[in-house]
Design a binder for these strands. Structure first.
Length: 572
RNA sequence: GGCGCGGUAGCUCAGUUGGUUAGAGCGAUCGACUCAUAAUCGAUAGGUCGGGAGUUCAAGUCUCCCCCACGCCA
């Protein structure tokens, strides 16, 4: 038995995520977690909300709520939606948790002790009206280059010129519109990542099985230009983890907080602490997943994330861990995804373009989205969502190939025999050939799942479903029945067992449908198959079942056109 | 402008270290079947693998140049 620690990139607290975000990390992570559990392995699957930073503060202000209250509410919303998609987190934590406060401060203290922190004085724009320092992109003004009047402090969106806030003509706060701004001197902590460049490089080189996408991004950041740059890990904000040196105050850093990119990945670890606390477990229980000196030596740690998150997971977070000098578990396998595009453009949170998780659940059951997204996961390149493709794939795969198989088998049995597994006849060459074929396909399916080749696994699963239809077509029990009812009984007995077999194998992809099928087949205790022949004898003669309702209703052309139109514009 | 990932059948995508007639699913056409959600099964037709040059006995697969899309950075 292997112990699998699995984390998904933690979504930002501000608003509801779209389907591109979902397939970029949470959903494939869930697929892997469910699969490993089904194989009998021990799994700790963690995710959380990333709650600190200016965007959260501003969103809270816009909603007219204190930021902690806003985050608590949004966390509940995201948790409910995650449940809607059947994301099987062992714990869905919060980066604002007490555990993460303590751990983030602990890491900062260790890094300081190791001489990896330096203090840097910077000049930043302060808004007197807002009573806060403004990040570059929250300063607006007229572009000195093209005279566009809504240029941001980091870049002009109109002419794409990169800017410094001080370049802007008539700069103003993007938050309040105030022009009462001044440049102030402020002190911040920087993590000397550059000191760890060789360690990081060696560590990345030791990862032979990482995808090209992952290593190429990491290497670029490591070696491009002057190489890995030191990064500020503190901010002048109210909402965040107070800067401390372990449990002690940090002289000169009063009133400042750690920057989100520093505390967010640490939440992966803190989340395990939250999980333990929420389940009445001890520190030793969660540390056995994270400390290689306390039991985590045999843990396989897999991270899932979109490609934009790769640098933080290959460089920043490892730098924090390596720099601490403590025996924390580091990632073994890092699975990154490209982007899912929407109807010829990008999904966009800021522009409200595409389909958002809450909206998707209003339209269709989670299995529909899970199946399409996973079977079209953007693994090797960006991929494309179109309503036509979605409708065709879901109707064909789920309704026609799988759903209809269940339907034809159970209904045939009911009409010719009854609602129990019929007796009589025996398996012959055709059946043995099918079993051999399925045994081989099961092996390939598992190989793809073990390697987290999501699309390939989906394709193999679909081929396994198809094999059932091929079998029925070959032996034609409806014809057999006229000449030899006993033989027809044997054929349908096998087919009924296939339904349970399929439900078990499909569970990681489509958990709800799988559970429903197992219930109707009265086989909720079905185990993951190893020997196909044995597994297909699981439902014995006389075993009662019920004929299920339509497992997957098809998406009609009218529905598709309606949705296509509804989601063509921006989210209200 | 620099760098990065891509550009393979109508669509969504596979193509290991260069090697026989370039693959899958969907869609299309034809046929079979009628148990089933007008479902299923089979067969066929579709590609000068973005363009050009080069290396090689042999290139979608390596090298160079160009074009296009996307992303990151200055």
């Amino acid at each position: 038995m292997t112990r699998h620690l699995i984390t998904s990139a933690i979504p930002y607290i501000n608003g509801i995520k779209h389907l591109g975000n979902l397939i970029g990390s949470q959903l494939p992570a869930d697929l892997f977690a469910r699969y490993q559990r089904a194989r009998g392995n021990e799994v700790l699957f963690l995710c959380a909300t990333d709650e600190h930073g200016t965007p959260a503060e501003l969103a809270a202000a816009k909603a007219g709520k204190p930021v902690d209250e806003y985050c608590a509410e949004m966390h509940a919303v995201q948790a409910r939606i995650a449940e809607g998609f059947r994301l099987s987190f062992d714990h869905f934590g919060r980066s604002s948790s007490p555990q993460n406060h303590a751990l983030t401060q602990h890491f900062a203290g260790r890094l300081q002790e190791a001489g990896l922190i330096k203090e840097v004085s910077e000049k930043q724009v302060y808004s007197n009206t807002d009573g806060r320092f403004l990040p570059d992109r929250y300063i607006e003004g007229t572009c000195p280059n093209c005279a566009y009047d809504k240029a941001r402090g980091d870049q002009c969106e109109n002419c794409t010129k990169q800017l410094d806030p001080t370049d802007l003509v008539e700069p103003r706060s993007a938050i309040s519109g105030s022009t009462d701004l001044e440049v102030r001197e402020t002190k911040h902590l920087f993590l000397r990542q550059s000191e760890l460049k060789d360690d990081l490089n060696a560590w990345i080189d030791s990862k032979k099985d990482w995808p090209i996408l992952t290593t190429s991004i990491a290497k670029k950041w490591l070696h491009d230009g002057d190489g890995l740059r030191d990064r500020g890990i503190t901010r002048d904000l109210h909402w965040g983890i107070p800067v401390k040196n372990g449990t002690k105050d940090w002289p000169g850093m009063e009133g400042k907080v750690f920057y989100v990119w520093f505390d967010a990945p640490i939440e992966y670890i803190a989340c395990a602490g939250e999980w333990a606390a929420a389940n009445g477990l001890s520190d030793a229980d969660w540390e056995s997943w994270w400390r290689t000196d306390k039991g985590a030596h045999d843990v396989q740690y897999t991270q899932f994330m979109g490609k934009d998150n790769v640098p933080f997971h290959t460089l920043s977070f490892p730098a924090t861990i390596l720099g601490s000098g403590e025996p924390w578990k580091m990632v073994d396998h890092l699975k990154s995804f490209n982007y899912l595009n929407y109807d010829g453009g990008q999904f966009s949170t800021s522009q409200g373009r595409g389909i958002f998780m809450d909206q998707a659940l209003e339209l269709l059951p989670p299995d529909y989205w899970r199946w399409w997204l996973l079977s079209h996961a953007p693994e090797s390149s960006d991929s494309e969502f179109t309503w036509e493709n979605f409708q065709q794939s879901v109707n064909k795969d789920l309704a026609d190939v799988l759903g209809n198989f269940v339907s034809r088998v159970t209904k045939f049995c009911r009409s010719k025999f009854d609602e129990t597994v019929p007796a009589g006849g025996a398996y012959g060459d055709v059946e043995n050939a099918l079993i051999a074929d399925l045994q081989k396909r099961l092996g390939q399916y598992q190989e793809h799942m073990d390697a987290i080749e999501v699309r390939k696994a989906a394709a193999e699963l679909r081929a396994i479903w198809t094999a059932g239809n091929e079998y029925l077509q070959t032996v034609a029990p409806w014809s057999t029945f006229k000449e030899d009812p006993e033989q027809a009984a044997a054929q349908i007995r096998l087919a009924l067992n296939l339904v349970a077999f399929y439900a078990t194998l499909s569970a990681p992809f489509i958990p709800d449908a799988s559970a429903t099928l197992l219930e109707t087949m009265n086989a909720t205790d079905a185990a993951w198959p190893t020997d196909v022949a044995a597994s297909l004898g699981q439902l014995p003669v006389g075993h009662a079942f019920t004929v299920p309702e339509v497992s997957f209703a098809k998406i009609s052309d009218e529905q598709r056109e309606d949705w296509q139109e509804r989601f063509a514009g921006q989210r209200a």
